[in-house]
């Protein structure tokens, strides 16, 4: 029997959480065979209502502000491990894919998807009207799939797929 499909949405803080909640509802309404779960930062407003929580790079960056550069690599590795752990648990029962929303989760989510061998899409923030974020530029260099919500000169020159605005 084919496994059910599960989309894990890894969200940043603030508006990204709001977008993630909208996306989760849209995906769950899309089909009864499709499930969606949220992975939020432990420091985020939605953390208590989220399906999974991770201690993210931005959460720890605030705590370890003075040692940010030194802490970045181990924190990134910790984020990847936390996401991988969730994916491996879910892979036993579901056909899993990852969507990242917001700059913080994009890189660790992409690395985790490569380790776990699952599909990954990063959706650029709806606030990025005339440019794309540094995280997504990095992802593009790593040949990841990046969708943008607004069409502009930069996204056109990079031939990025325009997915429309989450609302």
């Amino acid at each position: 029997m084919a496994k059910e499909k599960l989309v894990l949405i890894v969200a940043g803080v603030g508006g990204h959480e709001a977008q993630a909640k909208i996306l989760k509802n849209k995906l769950c309404d899309w089909s009864t065979e499709l499930k969606a779960e949220l992975i939020c930062e432990a420091s985020s407003m939605a953390a208590n209502k989220s399906d999974h929580r991770i201690y993210s790079s931005s959460f720890l960056a605030k705590k370890l502000a003075r040692f940010r550069v030194l802490a970045l690599v181990p924190v990134l590795a910790a984020n990847v491990l936390q996401i991988c752990k969730i994916v491996f648990q879910k892979k036993m029962y579901f056909d899993v894919a990852i969507v990242s929303l917001g700059p913080f989760p994009a890189i660790p989510s992409f690395i985790a998807s490569k380790i776990c061998g699952i599909k990954f899409v990063s959706i650029e923030s709806r606030s990025r009207i005339v440019s794309i974020s540094a995280s997504n530029k990095l992802l593009l260099m790593m040949k990841a799939q990046v969708f943008v919500q607004h069409s502009n000169n930069e996204t056109k020159s990079k031939n990025l797929k325009h997915i429309g605005v989450l609302r």
Partner: peptide, 14 residues
């Protein structure tokens, strides 16, 4: 605002 294309996302993922 342009509508969000959910079908495109689901097709890309699965």
């Amino acid at each position: 605002l342009p509508e969000f294309n959910l079908e495109m996302l689901v097709n890309e993922l699965f």
